[in-house]
């Protein structure tokens, strides 16, 4: 156990040093992160104001709370490994990773953790500014806040394994970038980014419930905001665990095949 701690401490420190080298790029990434929720917040606020103060049960203050929490959850659970795989496979970076005596996924986890620390530098002022500017209202109970923590935690792992599964497709196709863009457009609609899911037409809402995306983002957000009934909360955790399990199994199966393929073809 203590050796794992040592490995993780070292990896996280290294990753943090790397991120500091690229802090300008990292900050720009984060600006991109803020623009999208801000844009949809403005759009829905405008809609609510022109429809007599609320739309689908959301007032402008509710939208503000929704998008601020969404931005936080999105940042905390975000993973970019899917973008890295293409480069790793093409440039032979995998040869280095495979030579290490530990599974490469640990390096990514450490990398992620250090990035999250750096994220705070931009996230905290952005949240404060938006709180001040948009007057959000929160109906959060202590129970909501307590359940929010495991929901975000599971969501992180769900996204992380999904990122790896998606990224590993790079072992089989060179068009991974196009696939990722398709994936993010689907996610935009079904994760609650474009609009709170209850505002979607019923058909899209039904689709969203069977896909994994709302459980990794919209679910923790609505849970925190106290918008879910007890039944919905348990269903949500169930779906989160189910999808995380599916992604983990897919990850294990694909990883074995990917390594076999990589070592057979080289790079």
């Amino acid at each position: 156990m203590s050796e794992w701690l040592a490995i993780y401490t070292a990896q996280t420190k290294r990753a943090f040093a790397v991120w500091l080298q690229y802090r300008a790029a990292a900050i720009i990434w984060m600006i991109g992160f803020i623009v999208q929720p801000l844009m949809y917040l403005v759009v829905w606020t405008t809609v609510a104001e022109s429809s007599g103060g609320s739309v689908g049960g959301y007032t402008p203050s509710d939208f503000a709370a929704y998008y601020i929490v969404l931005m936080i959850v999105d940042q905390v659970t975000y993973t970019w490994v899917q973008h890295e795989f293409d480069y790793r496979v093409r440039e032979g970076e995998f040869s280095r990773l495979l030579l290490l005596p530990i599974h490469p996924i640990h390096e990514d986890v450490a990398d992620n953790i250090s990035y999250k620390v750096l994220t705070l530098i931009v996230l905290v002022p952005a949240v404060i500014l938006m709180m001040w500017f948009f007057n959000p209202t929160f109906n959060t109970t202590w129970q909501n806040a307590a359940l929010f923590v495991p929901a975000v935690f599971i969501s992180f792992w769900l996204r992380f394994f999904m990122g790896w599964v998606l990224g590993m497709l790079a072992f089989w196709t060179t068009r991974i970038a196009a696939l990722i863009r398709m994936y993010s457009v689907i996610k935009l609609f079904f994760s609650g980014r474009l609009a709170p899911l209850t505002l979607l037409p019923p058909v899209l809402f039904a689709v969203a419930r069977v896909l994994p995306f709302m459980w990794e983002l919209a679910f923790p957000v609505e849970l925190f905001l106290g918008r879910l009934s007890a039944d919905e909360i348990w269903l949500g955790f169930g779906m989160q665990l189910l999808w995380t399990g599916i992604m983990f199994i897919a990850f294990r199966l694909m990883w074995r095949r990917a390594v076999r393929r990589y070592t057979a073809f080289g790079s």
Binding site: T46, V47, V55, A178, R181, V185, L194, P201
Partner: peptide, 26 residues
């Protein structure tokens, strides 16, 4: 072609969903 279709989907899809709830936006 795929990318253009995707950006079209995002833009038009957004309009459809928003105007499901309102007649004008600003």
């Amino acid at each position: 072609i795929l990318e253009s279709i995707l950006s079209l989907t995002v833009a038009v899809g957004g309009i459809i969903i928003v105007f499901d709830h309102t007649a004008t936006l600003g």
